[in-house]
Structures are given as C-alpha cells and as structure tokens.
C-alpha cells in the first residue's frame, strides 16, 4: 500500500519525468539584421511552460553578442546560450536585464562569466526581493528551476548611448511597470526591446506598477522611430499597436477601479467584474486582471475613504 502511494506521488509530482528530460526547445527567430528573439508563450508561469513567457533576444555585433534578458531559470539561460552558439561563434560581450521580475534575470547564472548590466533601481530591487521571487518561482514551475539561484547584475547602467561593433544602442531608463525599466533601442536597425513597459496581446502585469508613470513611459516610447517592437511578453510587431493596446488596458483598469471604489464597491466584488470585449484577445486576461486588482486596489480605496475620527 505504502509503495503504491509513493509511486503515485512520484508520478503526479513530476509530469515532465515520463516525457524525458525537461527542455525549453529554444529556437532563435531572426527579426532584423543581426537580431534574434526567443519567443515565449503568452501564458502565466506554469509547470508545463517552465516559466517560458518572455521574449529574450540577442544582437550579434563585431564586438561580441549582446544578450537582452536571461529568462526564468538557470536551465533557460544555459539553453539560450547553446542556441546562440548555433547562430554565431562570437563570444558573449554583455547582458542587459530590463527589470527586477524573475523571468528577466533568473538565467543569469549561465552568463556569470560576462558583465550583466541593469539600472540601479533594478539592482536594488533584485537585492531586496530576488530571493523571495526565486522561491516563488520554484513553487510555480517546479523542477525546471533546479540549480537556479539569484545572481545580482554586476554592472550599473544609466541613460546613455553605447556602441558595440556597428550597432548603436540607446539605453532608455523608464519607470512605471517597475521602479526601473530599461528599454533598449538599436538605432542601427530600429529594433526596440521595450522591456516590461509594453505588452502585446498579453495582459500587462502590475505587481510593482505605478500607472501614471507607466503611461508617461509609453508616451516616451511612442515618440521613437521603430522598425520592429519587441515587447517582453507577447507578439513581436512591426508597428506600435502594442503600445496603444498597453495604454488602453492600463487606462481602462485604473479608471474602472477608481470608479468602482468611488461607488462603494469592495475589492472582492471587483474580482469577477466584466472586462470589455476588446481585451478578450489578450493572454491570461482574467488571472492578470485579478492580480492587478490585488496590486492597485488598496491605494485607490484609501483615497476614497475620508478620515472620520
């Protein structure tokens, strides 16, 4: 009896086990000259996708390979590095990490031999919350995380233009999605790695969001000359529709929560509130909406309840 129970627990705890070793099966997609992206799913972190929900990328320059985001786990970083080696034999020159969320940097261990650059606010955030976020990723995606430990970025960057080979990269510090969001515009190709600020057909995530600042960041990106926009989650596009979609969602979300708070609603009543049809095509819609209610509601609520003693 006990043996059967053990066997059952083993089987149910390791769905990937029967199907062989876990692999992300990463395939670099060329999106512009010298520029590739690994397209993630438009889902939330799950045990079947192993946390592969991001669009990390790389640019091959005469000065080495520039990597943008390292993915959700050590395994992802290692597979990324192996996949890059199928495209070029140039060494990795530098890694950029756009913000503190775990899927952007938990693959850092696979790039420990090169400089890993991030904004000061991102580095502070990873120092403060990195361990907790790593633990939560183990809970959410399980065995895919094996061997993953936080590695804080090693180099601080600021708003600037940097040149690698023939590529001029404009580092654009923004805020709103988190306290420090790095967007990278390759002025040579017109490719914009938008960081966490732009979502494309995937519902924006708001655990560290300031909606007002975020809308201002979208305006800043909207003013750039862009040929290809790489949102960090969702479809890659050759237009700016994803900026408009992200703006539309954030504006609706903020306005709706404020209106409902003003009308006396309780947070629990917002969980199943209707979402307009035009957002139906965005991935993880209801789940991310509920998470956003949890993130944004308390402050909005406090503002509509006057002091009475």
């Amino acid at each position: 009896m006990r043996f059967i129970l053990c066997l059952f627990l083993l089987l149910s705890a390791a769905p990937g086990w029967a199907a062989g070793p876990l692999t992300y099966n990463l395939k670099p997609v060329a999106i512009a000259p010298d520029t590739w992206v690994f397209e993630g799913t438009r889902e939330h972190f799950t045990r079947s996708n192993g946390g592969n929900i991001l669009n990390p990328g790389f640019i091959v320059t005469d000065d080495g390979v520039i990597v943008i985001q390292t993915g959700p786990s050590r395994r992802f970083g290692e597979e990324m590095r192996a996949a890059i080696a199928t495209v070029t034999d140039k060494p990795i020159r530098k890694v950029f990490v756009s913000n503190l969320h775990p899927d952007y940097w938990l693959g850092n261990r696979a790039f420990a031999d090169v400089p890993i650059a991030a904004l000061p606010g991102t580095i502070e955030g990873i120092k403060a919350e990195g361990l907790g976020m790593t633990e939560n990723m183990y809970r959410l995606v399980g065995d895919w995380m094996r061997g993953t430990e936080p590695l804080v970025p090693t180099e601080t960057v600021y708003g600037s233009t940097v040149v690698f080979g023939a590529h001029r990269l404009r580092l654009i510090p923004l805020e709103g999605h988190t306290a420090a969001d790095l967007a990278i515009l390759d002025e040579t190709t017109g490719v914009l790695f938008a960081g966490g600020v732009v979502f494309s057909d995937r519902t924006p995530t708001t655990p560290h969001a300031d909606i007002g600042q975020w809308l201002a960041a979208l305006d800043a990106l909207d003013a750039l000359d862009v040929t290809v926009l790489v949102p960090n989650h969702g479809r890659i596009r050759t237009d700016k529709a994803a900026i408009a979609q992200t703006r539309d969602w954030l504006s609706w979300l903020d306005r709706t929560l404020r209106e409902r708070a003003e009308a006396g609603a309780d947070m629990a009543e917002l969980l199943d509130a209707p979402i307009p049809e035009r957002f139906a095509g965005m991935g993880v819609l209801r789940e991310e909406y509920r998470r956003s209610v949890s993130h944004l509601w308390p402050r909005i609520e406090t503002a509509v309840l006057p002091r009475v003693n």
Binding site: P207, M267, A268, E269, L271, R290, S294, H295, W297, P298
Partner: peptide, 16 residues
C-alpha cells in the same frame, strides 16, 4: 464565499 483562487498578496486576501 467570494475570494480569488490564488492569494496574490498573502497579507491581504479579499473575501466577501
């Protein structure tokens, strides 16, 4: 009982 399926913030789970 209205509450989320997952507690996004373990320190403040809404319930009605």
């Amino acid at each position: 009982v209205t509450a989320p399926d997952n507690a996004e913030n373990a320190a403040a789970v809404p319930v009605m």
